[in-house]
């Protein structure tokens, strides 16, 4: 925890000078020598929702993984190129854990940890050293509220999180990501296991959340990107084809006709 505060002040100084949250240059990702993403360069600004759309196999998930340094979990996965978080090269970070705790991730397949619902959400605050019961209670309630799960589980916070339904587990995962109080929230097709009504509720929450954090939203639903994203990137077969203002893209102001074809559902 001591290390973290040191990084904190450094990060914070840089944040104030720059609005660019994440910047990647010539990012190339490969699995066992096979490229999954090549030469992607883009910037993600603070407090925006950055949408990423594209068909399967486009490298969207791989992109998210590299930001979080998840390549260290997988010996096959190689990441080359520059990744800057708050304007600092993440490959030079000394404290990977501090970086990961600032980035909340939600992957398509929900993972409720085999702990109680309460502990699932309280885990990250506990890792940060928060022990006080009332603070933990507050965090748990607030995060579950925001993930639109509180009403369903408030009477059974002590039952196992891993035995909730798929959609509930997904919202639990979102609550857990929020409990990190992240600077960046990465959502990878979060609505796959969630019903449409709840999806809408979460989307509303995301619109609120962007005032507090930066959100990267990978989605298979182009309309979801349209509803939420400030800017949208279109990935195809490991390349970033186009990045632009979401409204403009959906109005047909595209540089590459492929983008419009995808948005309008003409292939995929």
């Amino acid at each position: 925890m001591v290390e973290k505060t040191v990084v904190d002040t450094e990060f914070d100084r840089v944040v104030k000078a720059q609005k660019c949250k994440i910047e990647v240059n010539d990012l190339t990702i490969s699995y066992a020598g096979k490229a999954a993403l090549s030469d992607v360069s883009l910037k993600i600004y603070e407090n925006e929702i950055f949408g990423i759309i594209g068909p399967a196999n486009a490298g969207k998930t791989s992109f998210l993984k590299s930001l979080n340094l998840m390549n260290t979990f997988d010996a096959n996965m190689k990441v080359e190129g520059d990744i800057r978080f708050n304007n600092r090269d993440i490959h030079q970070l000394r404290n990977v854990y501090a970086l990961r705790s600032r980035i909340g991730v939600v992957f398509p397949l929900p993972v409720g940890l085999p702990l109680t619902i309460y502990e699932n959400v309280a885990l990250s605050p506990r890792l940060r050293g928060i022990k006080d019961k009332t603070s933990l209670d507050q965090i748990v309630e607030r995060c579950l509220q925001r993930a639109a799960l509180w009403d369903e589980v408030k009477d059974r916070l002590n039952s196992l999180g891993s035995l909730l339904s798929g959609g509930q587990q997904q919202r639990l995962t979102i609550a857990r990501a929020l409990s990190q109080e992240p600077e960046v929230l990465m959502l990878d097709e979060f609505s796959i296991a969630v019903d449409p009504v709840t999806t809408m509720r979460i989307e509303d929450v995301l619109k609120e959340l962007k005032h507090e954090m930066t959100i990267i939203l990978v989605t298979n639903l182009v309309q979801q990107a349209h509803r939420l994203a400030d800017r949208t990137a279109f990935f195809l077969d490991g390349k970033c084809i186009e990045i632009g203002d979401t409204e403009a893209l959906f109005n047909g102001e595209v540089k590459d006709p492929l983008t419009l074809d995808y948005i309008e559902g003409r292939f995929g």
Binding site: G104, L115, Q180
Partner: peptide, 25 residues
């Protein structure tokens, strides 16, 4: 393994993950 990755993604160290999630189970 997914449980471990979920923990690491939150910034937990290997030992924190082992102690809080892997060993109890």
């Amino acid at each position: 393994h997914a449980f471990r990755e979920a923990c690491w993604n939150m910034g937990a160290t290997r030992w924190q993950t082992i102690r809080r999630v892997v060993l109890p189970n």
